[in-house]
């Protein structure tokens, strides 16, 4: 219960950004690896059902920002590996700037209001 209370839902619209960033820094990954990575980085603070990842992956693939191909994992299992595309890199750069601006703005408002 207490651990649940401390966890946050993923902020609307940020999942795409996080996925893109993960793929950029780690290279092609399958969905499970992405989910695991997210949990590690957030130190389990993000409340994320692993299935929730799929809409983001589908969306990004349809937008042409990532591309999925079926390959074997190290343990010789079949999995779909997603890689970031050129468009994805560009989008990531733009989104990052936007996010920084936005969070900076929110931060500023919050601290000034106090």
């Amino acid at each position: 219960m207490s651990s649940e209370a401390g966890r946050m839902p993923v902020l609307q619209g940020t999942l795409d950004l996080i996925v893109l960033r993960t793929l950029e820094s780690m290279g092609p990954q399958h969905a499970y690896a992405i989910a695991t990575r997210l949990q590690q980085v957030s130190e389990d603070l993000l409340r994320l059902n692993q299935g929730t990842l799929y809409p983001a992956l589908v969306r990004l693939e349809q937008q042409g920002r990532i591309k999925g191909t079926w390959r074997k994992t190290e343990s010789n299992r079949e999995a779909k590996f997603y890689a970031i595309t050129k468009a994805g890199v560009k989008a990531l750069a733009e989104e990052t700037v936007r996010w920084r601006r936005m969070s900076g703005l929110v931060e500023k408002l919050l601290s000034e209001g106090a």
Binding site: H30, Y32, A33, Q50, Y54, T73, R77, E78, A79, K80
Partner: peptide
């Protein structure tokens, strides 16, 4: 297929 693979992993 993708979900099955995910679960397997």
């Amino acid at each position: 297929r993708e979900i099955a693979s995910h679960l397997a992993l």
